[in-house]
């Protein structure tokens, strides 16, 4: 067996208390993503060893769930809400405006400089704010900023500012 790399040792320490056949896979993946922002191939291998699974099974599960990322996240994620209340208030127009402003083809992509990325958000029942999106800063996943009562014009302004280096605080102020 090859020597354990530092990265692998860190991942292993993070999930050391998790056990095979105990319903711990999702928890392992959540912990890793929370720590690193994404789940690397190496991390999946460590999870597989820890939980007594094949690496292919871990990869299969990781890619099955839409919230797990396989690549490092951008500095700011624009999470566009794909719910019905948003849809009937020009949700699709807002999505297309954001993508066009950032020069992206579809949700999930990010700008080449890694500044701004997009993600498909699912309705969580704050539909009084429709249409809406969440702005998330890397490493601050628990503090997503909600931007409600959006218009396509406002979405374009925010996406431009984020693209040009503004912080989430700056674009949501005022």
């Amino acid at each position: 067996m090859p020597l354990e790399t530092e990265a692998r040792a860190q991942v292993r320490a993070l999930i050391a208390d998790l056990k095979p056949n105990d319903g711990d896979l999702l928890q392992a993946l959540h912990r890793i993503q929370h720590e690193y922002g994404y789940i690397s191939r190496e991390a999946m291998e460590v999870v597989a060893e820890q939980l007594g699974l094949y690496a292919a099974e871990v990869y299969g599960a990781t890619t099955f769930y839409s919230e797990f990322r396989l690549e490092p996240p951008p500095a700011v994620t624009v999470r566009w809400c794909g719910g019905p209340a948003c849809l009937v208030r020009n949700g699709r127009g807002i999505r297309d405006a954001i993508l066009a402003t950032l020069g992206l083809q579809e949700l999930g992509e990010q700008t080449a400089d890694g500044r701004v990325g997009t993600w498909l958000g699912q309705c969580n029942g704050t539909c009084e704010l429709a249409p809406m999106m969440w702005l998330e800063e890397h490493g601050h996943w628990d503090e997503a900023r909600v931007v409600g009562h959006l218009t396509a014009a406002r979405a374009v302004r925010m996406a431009r500012a984020l693209r040009d280096g503004a912080s989430v605080d700056e674009v949501t102020r005022g």
Binding site: N21, L26, H30, L51, F64, Y65, E67, Q122
Partner: peptide, 25 residues
């Protein structure tokens, strides 16, 4: 158990698969 974004896990057997370390099929 914290899900991870898969609508089909709302199906009862998809949810069961998801609990036990599998894709939520």
């Amino acid at each position: 158990i914290r899900g991870a974004g898969a609508y089909v896990c709302g199906d009862e057997t998809g949810l069961l698969s998801s609990i036990q370390d599998m894709r939520g099929m």
